[in-house]
Amino acid sequence: MLALRTALTAFRRAPLLSVLSITTIAFSLFAFGLFGLVALNIRNALQQVEERVEIRAFVAEGTTVERITATGDEIAKFPEVARVDVVTQEQALDRARKELGEFKDVFESQFLPASLDVHLKQGFRDPATVRTVADRIRGYDFVDDVRFGEEWITQLYRLRNIAGVAGLTLGLAFAAVAIIIIGATIRMAVLARSREISIMRLVGATDGFIRRPFLIEGSIKGVLGGFLALVMTYLAMRVLEQYLHFETAFFDRRLATLGVIFGALMGLMGSAVSVGRHLRRV
């Protein structure tokens, strides 16, 4: 109670610095949030795409169906592989006819090769793994050619990584600024209350008790910053949606709560670091 009351007085004492610390915390989390959101949406997109990730190995003409099936079983035992579909020449033709109905005449002859369609397990669909599996399949001598959507999977992954790194860097920079500003606020508050603090010490208040209001103050600012960041991220996402015309996912409740908790931790850390240092000088 006393701690909460003194925390509120601290707000009143330095409103400008308080607002400043809240906004820098918010900007830090906003940077994390915005880029996190980009990463989240790319991940969702990737997941949809990945469902369809497959490696198609075209088989040389004249290979027996038995041989193809046996090899398919062998490939199915690779640790990365979820399932292998054997597609005979007839099936390939059927599929082509269905997909490209108008041109069915083109496919009269048996020039479409048989293939093995390899589906990978979840978690093994990143470009590097896809490539090694493809290389291994290419090793069978009756395999003519191996195809997979290498290019654009790589692109999407790269985009996700860039968003992640940019968010992390910007977010950390703002976090550092926030912690510095919180430190300055605490310094002022400690100085303004130096007599109170020295009396507390004299009459036997514990360090923890003396520190508590400053920590509470920092955490409250962190929580407020967290909420502000959520609002800012949400609005930014709305604006982006309008311009880019595609539907995006926002953080679910768990991630949003995590963000606010993260803000509280930032405020708490900022004050914990500086309160110890400044209290020692009173």
Binding site: S198, I199, V203, G204, D207
Partner: peptide
């Protein structure tokens, strides 16, 4: 440090400059 706080609860300390709020 904790015990210093405990000890001071059993001491009364007064200064020349009163140290009132």
């Amino acid at each position: 440090r904790r015990d210093v706080a405990k000890l001071r609860r059993r001491l009364g300390i007064v200064f020349q400059d009163f140290q009132l709020l």
